Simulated assay, not measured.
Amino acid sequence: MAQIIKFFDDIHTMMQNNGDPRTAKWPLMSSPLPTLAICLTYVYLVKVLGPRIMENKKPMELRNVLIYYNFFQVLFSLWLFCEIGMSGWLTGRYNLRCEPVDYSNHPVTIRMVHACWWYYFSKFTEFFDTIFFVLRKKNEHISTLHVIHHGVMPMSVWFGVKFTPGGHSTFFGLINTFVHIVMYTYYLLAALGPQYQKYLWWKKYLTTFQMVQFVAIMVHAFQLLFIDCNYPRAFVWFIGMHAVMFFFLFNEFYKQAYQKKGRIGVTKATVQKGASPNGKLTNGHVTDSAKSTSHTANGYSNSRAADYYVKASPEDLHLRSTSSIKVTAGASEVK
């Protein structure tokens, strides 16, 4: 027991001696334990407690809530992008090749430090993406990968705000907030209803854009392994490997969502042209089982993308398991 107490005392001492004094007394910055506790509570809530509470309840209709939430996230991400950009990256003050952390109290530097903390805070607001799944009983979308993606980020960003709030690593925040502006705009359009389907043709390209983001972050971080720059090498690996991990996760999602979707679409087209899944003719008509999946209980056509978004937005771009894709008599139904 004495060894355990000593271990935590040593960690606390290390945090105090090496942490940035400018953020030491800011909310949640004195220790990693509050952030860790919040992340663990989030995991328990969305994976265990929430589904248990909602088990015998009807799914909540949250369309208006989703509209306001996504609109807020667009504005919040836009503000963060401007703050991080105007504190260095978009003014010529920061160097893409090497940007050590500025630990001074210069007004522009302090502006960047504040932007780093608010970026950290934004990772908690993104928990609501999953909470809305729970309230709407979309538990099949709360995959392990989805929860890891959201649950890890606050803890990861905490270390940056604690030790390196500024400099090279803030490029991650600049790119990520820009992607979130685009991403939550897509979610907002999706939540507005089926009449906005014609504006949702670019989902596939948004996923590609997300992967390009991680490639840019990888290159930007790992270049410091070959450049003499006064920036902590541990954070180079930390940020770079995060980008590698998320790139492969999103790449796997891309293959599941679009390549498999393409194969399912071919099967569906075959049925609609008069051939059953086993190759037998059906006199030019879709089989009864296919017809039964063409509309939901609420009257929305499953063949229309916008109908799905009204019911399930904004989860489609989040990580999920391949088991959520079902094929019924040649007609695809994504839950």
Rank of each mutant, 00 (worst) to 15 (best):
H295K: 15
G85M: 14
D288G: 11
K268N: 15
V271C: 05
M183Y: 02
R63Y: 07
L78P: 08
M86I: 13
F171Q: 04
M15I: 08
V113E: 06
L62Q: 00
D9V: 09
N251R: 04
S321A: 11
L224V: 01
G50A: 05
L319E: 01
K138V: 09
Y42I: 03
L45Y: 05
A115K: 00
F226N: 12
D9N: 10
K280E: 13
Y205C: 10
M60G: 13
H141S: 13
K6A: 11
R63V: 07
V310E: 13
L206V: 04
G166K: 00
V286M: 10
F250T: 01
S122Q: 05
S323L: 15
H318D: 10
L224N: 02
V244S: 00
Y300I: 13
F235C: 06
I131H: 00
S321Q: 15
Q213L: 14
G284A: 02
K57I: 02
V271Y: 15
E252L: 14
A37D: 02
V327N: 15
V48Q: 13
C82K: 12
V161I: 00
P21G: 06
I264S: 10
W237Q: 06
L90S: 07
S321P: 13
I110T: 12
F8A: 15
M155K: 01
T109P: 14
V334C: 04
Y42H: 14
I84F: 06
K268I: 14
E99T: 07
H242N: 15
M29V: 02
Y119L: 11
F172R: 02
V286K: 13
T13I: 15
C82T: 08
Y300V: 08
Y68F: 06
S143V: 01
K25R: 14
L96G: 05
Y199N: 07
R320I: 11
V286R: 12
S276E: 10
E315N: 09
F250H: 02
V236N: 11
V179K: 05
Y44M: 13
K268D: 10
A234S: 09
L45G: 04
K291M: 14
D288Q: 11
G92I: 04
L174F: 13
K204V: 13
P314H: 02
N56M: 00
T164W: 04
K255D: 06
L225T: 06
Q256D: 14
P277K: 11
F214P: 00
A331Q: 07
I67K: 05
K138C: 12
E55H: 01
S332E: 07
Y187N: 03
C116I: 02
I325D: 15
F159K: 01
K204H: 10
F127Y: 02
F178Y: 04
F171P: 03
A290M: 12
F214K: 01
L200Y: 07
P194H: 05
L62W: 03
C82H: 14
